[in-house]
Amino acid sequence: MGRIKDCFENLKAGNKKALIPFITAGDPSPDITLPLLNTLVENGADIIELGVPFSDPMADGPVIQRSTERALKHKIGLHNVLDMVREFRKTDQKTPLILMGYLNPVEIMGYDSFAKEANEAGVDGVLLVDMPPEESDALQAELKKYGIDQVFLLSPTTSDKRLDVVCAKASGFLYYVSLKGVTGSNQLNISDVSEKIGHIRQKTELPIGVGFGIKDAESAKSVSAFSDAVIVGSSLVSLIADLTDKKDEMLIEAGKFIAGLRTALNVT
């Protein structure tokens, strides 16, 4: 079995929680993505979610939308993202990498070619925001051939009936969307999330990550108390955006931000 499973098992053995940062591939420019990925890992990221730019990011708030627009100015498509993964794998064979994005770029590449190429490049998991389990049979069949996990979202509006459907199809881990809204929203209610995660645990053995609305060390820490992984996107992407023209500083600050989260998660 793959890197994602190994990663969660190792963390569990060390009584640690996974830190999963998200960045958009090619944002703000294609040459920075590889050094950023390496910086994130060096500073304590356990798994990385790499965003595949899409012209119509319906589930994303303004921060991630703009990151996508910056990447698309450089015409970064799924092929380019897979090239970046290939480069990353030349020096890092350990860190699990998950592609996150929307279905259409995968659809146009074709499910079979995508699964094959993603596997060859070194992708471990795929999270397609607009592809619920009900629509994913054909893609999943292709991904399974190569042992690529399909990560699904769960949300506060997921009914018990749907919870069973999602848990049955998911692999790798489950991504709990902590609030109703788009990425980068900020009305996180810790006790609600905690209760819901407890409920989900009764249905699945899979690790559960929590994302949306986690901004800093404090919120990461409180969410890690009841989840297996903490996913941080908009705050990191926003930091990157602010330093668009200062790449050295961007790498340093992104590293510091991740290191800060890592430290907070490690304190018991």
Partner: peptide, 14 residues
């Protein structure tokens, strides 16, 4: 056709 949306909308669409 179908229903290709983020998880949060699946419940409301049902």
């Amino acid at each position: 056709g179908g229903r290709f949306v983020a998880e949060t909308l699946m419940g409301p669409l049902e």
